[in-house]
Simulated assay, not measured.
Amino acid sequence: MTSSESVSFGYEDVTPEEKVARVGAVFSSVAKKYDVMNDAMSVGMHRLWKDRFVARVKPREGEQILDMAGGTGDIAFRMAAQGASITVSDINQDMLDVGIERAMKRGIDGLVWSRQNAEELSFGNRFFDAYTIAFGIRNVTHIDKALAEAYRVLKFGGRFYCLEFSTTEWPGFAEIYDVYSHKLVPKIGQAIAGDADSYRYLIESIRRFPKMGEFEQMIKNAGFRHTKVEPILGGLVAIHSGWKV
């Protein structure tokens, strides 16, 4: 039995079940070229954004941190270098497999790799000191459920950090980026990953994601306090944060 509810898959409206399947197919398709494509699409800037993000999280030795949608390990590797204990979770096993392979090649030990649905985590209540998710929450079918789960698994005093694309508010830049993302990114995806459609979806998913203020309100609605939004490039990318107090 499928749901009559409608959710977005890029510019399409589909059932939740269809979105889960189609998002899974997208990331299985792009997994092996995901990081190469990130470099190509952002001209390498995604590395700086991730460095800035982890600097805001301030991972510390002895902390337990859940990195959700962290498949290829980019965020986890940075946080593990600070001494924190990291559980890397992703709904897509192909993405996790890429991350495990990268960790082995880099000689990074001690990470926990766990296939998880952000909307239904298997972890106990109040287990983690911090929850991070980078460029993943817009692909979740029910964002409110994922935020509720993030709140549940955090300890009191725990912190939530999300790095996600948003809508730039810089005049002129928004129009330039719109042309670049819709016209060129799918062509780059075809050239590098042999897959234009998946990257067309990823761009469309950015357009359908709530604006910064709307997403901050969703984080508040999940129970988080002291929420903050830090725009990058006028809001093209934003770091969202909140505390469980």
Results as ranks from 00 to 15, higher is better:
Glu169Gly: 15
Ala146Cys: 09
Gly172Tyr: 05
Leu184Phe: 12
Val112Ser: 15
Lys183Asn: 11
Ile137Thr: 05
Ala134Ile: 01
Gln190Asp: 15
Asp97Glu: 04
Glu120Gln: 10
Glu149Asn: 09
Leu147Glu: 04
Asp97Ala: 13
Thr132Ala: 03
Lys145His: 05
Ile206Cys: 12
Arg126Met: 01
Ser198Cys: 08
Tyr180Gly: 12
Ile133Ser: 13
Pro186Lys: 12
Gly194Met: 02
Glu120Met: 09
Met104Gly: 13
Lys155Met: 09
Lys105Tyr: 00
Gln190Leu: 06
Thr167Trp: 10
Glu101Tyr: 05
Cys162Phe: 02
Ile206Val: 15
Phe173Val: 15
Asn139Lys: 03
Trp170Asp: 09
Ser181Tyr: 03
Gly157Arg: 03
Asp195Pro: 06
Cys162Thr: 04
Arg159His: 12
Ile137Ala: 05
Val179Asn: 02
Pro171Tyr: 01
Glu101Trp: 06
Asn125Lys: 08
Pro186Ile: 01
Leu111Asn: 04
Ala103Gly: 05
Ala103Thr: 11
Thr167Glu: 13
Asp129Cys: 08
Met212Leu: 11
Arg126Tyr: 06
Val185Leu: 13
Phe123Val: 02
Ile206Pro: 09
Ile176Ser: 07
Pro210Ala: 10
Arg200Lys: 14
Val185Thr: 14
Gly157Lys: 01
Gln190Tyr: 01
Cys162Gly: 07
Phe160Ile: 08
Gly172Ser: 05
Met212Lys: 08
Tyr201Cys: 11
His142Gly: 01
Arg159Cys: 12
His182Gly: 14
Gly107Ile: 00
Asp97Gly: 08
Ile203Ala: 14
Ser205Gly: 11
Pro210Tyr: 07
Val98Arg: 05
Gly157Trp: 05
Phe209Ala: 13
Ala174His: 09
Gly136Asn: 01
Val179Gln: 08
Phe123Asp: 03
Trp170Asn: 11
Arg208Cys: 11
Ala196Met: 00
Arg102Gln: 10
Trp113Pro: 05
Arg126Phe: 03
Val98Met: 03
Gly107Met: 08
Phe165Met: 15
Glu119Pro: 08
Phe173Tyr: 04
Phe135Ala: 10
Ile188Asn: 12
Arg208Thr: 15
Ile188Glu: 13
Ala150Phe: 00
Pro171Val: 09
Gly99Lys: 04
Val185Arg: 13
Lys187Leu: 14
Glu101Gln: 13
Tyr199Glu: 11
Gly158Phe: 02
Ala118Asn: 03
Ile143Met: 05
Asp195Asn: 15
Asn139Phe: 04
Arg115Cys: 09
Pro186Asn: 10
Ala130Cys: 12
Thr167Tyr: 07
Gly136Met: 00
Arg152Asp: 01
Ile203Glu: 03
Ile100Gly: 02
Phe127Asn: 07
Gly110Pro: 03
Ala130Trp: 06
Glu169Ala: 15
Phe209Glu: 10
His142Val: 13
Asn139Gln: 04
